[in-house]
Computed example of a mutant assay.
Amino acid sequence: MTTAPPPRIAIIGAGPGGLTCARILQRHGITATVHDHETGPGSRNQGGTLDLHEDNGQIALREAGLLDEFFRLSRPEGQEMRQLDPGGKVLFHHTPEEGERFKPEIDRGHLRDLLLNSLEPGTVRWGHTLTSVDGPSEGPRLLRFADGTSVEADLVIGADGAWSKVRRAVSPATPRYSGVSFLEAWFHDVENRHPDIAGLVGRGSAAAADGERGLFAQRNSGDHIRVYIIQRVPADWITANGLTVQDTGPLRAHLVEQYRDWSPRMRRLLTDNDGRYVDRPILALPVPHSWEHDPTVTLLGDAAHLMPPLGVGVNLAMLDACELALAVAGTGTVDDAIRTYERTMLSRSHKMQQLLDHGAEELLSAELPDFATDDSDSDSDSD
C-alpha cells in the first residue's frame, strides 16, 4: 500500500494571516513555505497598533499555541476609548476593567515577530515577488517570481493583501476607492515632546468627527501616537491641490483650513506631527466578493474580503488562516479542505462585508457609536 505524498503548500504573504496559517500547519506536522516580496523581516515599518478580539484573532493564536505569549506582549490598557467633539470635549470614555482581555492592543510589528519566531527556520522566503500563478486548476500549480525562480505547489494560499496576485487566479475583482481617505501622522516621545496630545488621547484611542471630517488617534508602544486624519475627498485630492505627500508644510496649511472650525487643541493633532504624512486611501473589494471553487487555490484575509478599517481586518485574516490550516490538517484532500474552509469563510465574510459596506462613512459621523450607551462610563468634561 502506498501513501500519497504530503501536499506542497505555498503561502503568498508574510502578514499575520499567512504566518498564522503556516504556524498552525506546522503544529500539525504539515510543511508550508511562505513567500514574501519584502527583502527581510525588518525591511519596512509594519504599521500601527491593532486589537485582537477574543472571538476571532485570539482563537487563532490559541490554536497556534501563542496566546499566553500574546497576552505578555499586549497592552490591555490600550482598550481605553474616548469619543471627543471637535472642541475637545469628552463625550464618551471607556476605561477597561482590571483583567479585561476582550481586545487588547499589540503593535503590528510585535505580532509579526511573535509569529515569525514561532516558525521553523527557513519557512519564509524573502525577496520572492510573485508575478503569476500558472498551471492547470487541478494542479500542480507553477508559481513564478520576479527574480526568475519558480516553484510547484499543490495548494496555493493567497494571503497577499489588497492587491493580491493570487486573487487573479480565481477572481477578476480589484479594490475600489471608498470615497474616504486617511492621512496618517506620527508623534514620537509623546509624554515629553507632546504632553498635551498624550493627555488628549490617553492610553488607548480617541476619535472625533463633525460629519464631513474626522480624526482617530491611537497609542502605540514605545511612547508613540499615530493619528489618522479622515476626510471625504477624491482619491487624488493631494495632487488636485497641487501638492505631493512630501509637501509637509503646505499640507499642514491645507488641513488647518479644512479643520478651521475645530478647536486649536484638536488641530494640534493635524499640525504637530513629527515628519511627513502618509497617504492611505480607503479601499474595499466589491460586496459580496466570491469566486468559483478552485481545487488548488484559495484566499484569506484582505485578498479574499478587503473591507474598511473598522477593527476586523487582521482578526478575520487570522481566523481564516486558522480554519484553513485546520481543514488541511483534518481533511483527506486539498480540494476537500478548500471546500470545507470556503464554505464557512465565504459565508462569514459576505455577512461582514455587507455590514461594513460604506462603513468608512461612519468614521465621519458626529453621532456617538452604538457601544457608547453606558452613562456611568461617560465623562462630561474634557481631560
Rank of each mutant, 00 (worst) to 15 (best):
D134M: 05
G135T: 06
L115K: 00
G127E: 01
D113I: 04
H128P: 06
T129W: 11
L116N: 05
E105C: 04
D113S: 14
E105A: 13
R108L: 04
I106R: 04
E120N: 10
R125T: 08
L130D: 13
D107P: 09
D113L: 03
S132Q: 12
T131Y: 05
P121D: 09
L116F: 03
R108G: 07
D113Q: 14
N117A: 15
L130G: 13
L111D: 06
T129C: 12
N117E: 11
S132F: 10
P136D: 14
S118H: 04
G135D: 08
T131N: 12
L111H: 09
G127P: 07
L115R: 00
T131K: 12
R125F: 04
W126K: 00
R125K: 08
V133D: 02
D113A: 14
V133N: 06
L114G: 00
R108E: 02
L119W: 02
V133F: 03
L130H: 13
S118Q: 10
G122M: 10
P121W: 12
T123K: 08
K103P: 02
R112H: 06
D107E: 11
S118W: 03
N117V: 11
S118E: 08
L119V: 07
L119H: 09
P104K: 09
G109Y: 12
W126E: 01
P121G: 04
R125S: 05
T123F: 04
K103H: 10
E105R: 04
R125N: 10
L111Y: 09
E138M: 14
S132W: 05
D113F: 06
E120R: 08
E138Q: 14
L119E: 08
T131G: 07
D113R: 11
G109D: 06
L116S: 02
R112I: 00
T123M: 09
V124Y: 01
L114A: 00
G135E: 11
N117F: 08
G127S: 12
E105I: 03
P136K: 13
V133P: 02
E105M: 10
L114E: 02
L114W: 01
